[in-house]
């Protein structure tokens, strides 16, 4: 009984997400059953979502901390470019190159966090400029054209599989477990929630807000670096303008997943369900041969619907309490 009230609102939210997933699944079973429910189709879905899924976790951490990270796509591409260059031109072993990408992401994120935290500038502004700086740096490094043709083993990271299970699924699940653990079971994770919920109170409770801000953005940067590796391997190409729609998509995912846009609320589980739901919908559109852009339209409507739903539930909650 006690547990039930704990995260009632979140459970409500996740319930809605699951309901929507079930709806999509049933609808597709009726419309295109055999094609949709094939191993191949599920495989193709799994190949697609990890790159923006990992990115969305980065967005999630920043938003829970009361900010936002609009520079994630820039970090992703910068990481990807560095990784690709190291492999192709410097002959650096793949694991080291990947590590470099992650390190670049961490550096960019830490810089974001440092400026936000120490100068007290809104995260939106800093990361907006950050996007230009990091994308610009990626463009400057490549000099314009994409870097293509990395080794096959690098290509395999995002395109290969064990049996019929793609490697990237393991990467995604690994990231998911680590992120979920950090947010739920570490002091830092709780401090991120406190920071986003009320920065002043966090300070008055003895939380080092500057450190937490920097760490949250660093974590976001690291996740950006990881998704940079995945997308570069997936496309077997690195350039400064890959995945330009992902900023919007990741924002949509986290808000749809129940992260409070004002900070301090939401769960990893909600975001995970939201990632899967959006992939199911995207795939449904592909199967139905609907134009890709219809997805953008539907995503926009979904975002509004999710927010309105949240408002309605909040109001109902308030009324119940008073």
């Amino acid at each position: 009984m006690k547990k039930k009230t704990a995260s009632k609102k979140l459970n409500d939210h996740i319930k809605v997400l699951i309901l929507m997933m079930v709806f999509v699944l049933i609808l597709m079973a009726v419309l295109k059953g055999p094609v949709y429910y094939s191993v191949n189709n599920f495989r193709s879905m799994i190949f697609q979502f990890p790159e923006y899924g990992v990115l969305s976790f980065g967005m999630m951490v920043c938003m829970i901390a009361g900010g936002i990270d609009l520079s994630l796509v820039g970090i992703m591409n910068l990481g990807g470019v560095v990784c690709a260059l190291l492999i192709k031109n410097a002959g650096v072993p793949i694991p080291l190159a990947c590590l470099a990408s992650v390190a670049v992401g961490a550096g960019c994120g830490a810089l974001n966090g440092l400026i936000i935290g120490s100068l007290d500038i809104p995260a939106m502004l800093v990361t907006l400029c950050g996007l230009e700086v990091y994308s610009g740096l990626a463009l400057a490094i490549t000099g314009g054209p994409a870097i293509n043709g990395m080794s096959d083993s690098f290509k395999n990271i995002a395109n290969g599989s064990i049996g019929s299970i793609p490697y990237v699924l393991f990467i995604f699940i690994g990231v998911l477990i680590v992120v979920a653990f950090i947010m739920k079971h570490t002091v830092f994770g709780h401090e991120v929630y406190f920071l986003g919920s009320n920065k002043q109170a966090a300070r008055y409770s003895g939380i080092n807000t500057l450190r937490t801000t920097i760490l949250a953005h660093t974590m976001s940067g690291i996740l950006g670096g990881i998704s940079g590796i995945i997308i570069t391997s997936h496309l077997n190409s690195a350039k400064s303008s890959n995945g330009s729609t992902y900023t919007l998509l990741s924002l949509l995912i986290v808000v749809l997943g129940g992260i409070n846009p004002d900070g301090g609320g939401g769960t990893v589980a909600g975001v995970t369900f939201s990632i899967v739901l959006l992939q199911l919908i995207a795939n449904a559109f592909t199967i139905m041969h609907a134009p890709d852009t219809l997805k953008t339209l539907v995503n926009g409507c979904l975002l509004v619907a999710a927010l309105i739903l949240d408002k309605v539930m909040q109001k109902r909650d308030m009324q119940k309490n008073s």
């Binding site: 936002i68 939106m124 919007l248 924002l251 949509l252 808000v255 846009p261 004002d262 134009p291 852009t293 219809l294 997805k295 953008t296 339209l297 539907v298 995503n299 926009g300 409507c301 975002l303 509004v304 927010l307 309105i308 408002k311």
Partner: peptide, 23 residues
């Protein structure tokens, strides 16, 4: 009217506008 956060509301409008017209 709906009191949504402006950043996210206009983001949604953005996808509705460009998604709609292209479709």
């Amino acid at each position: 009217i709906l009191n949504l956060p402006p950043l996210i509301a206009t983001l949604a409008t953005s996808s509705i506008a460009s998604g709609g017209v292209v479709t």
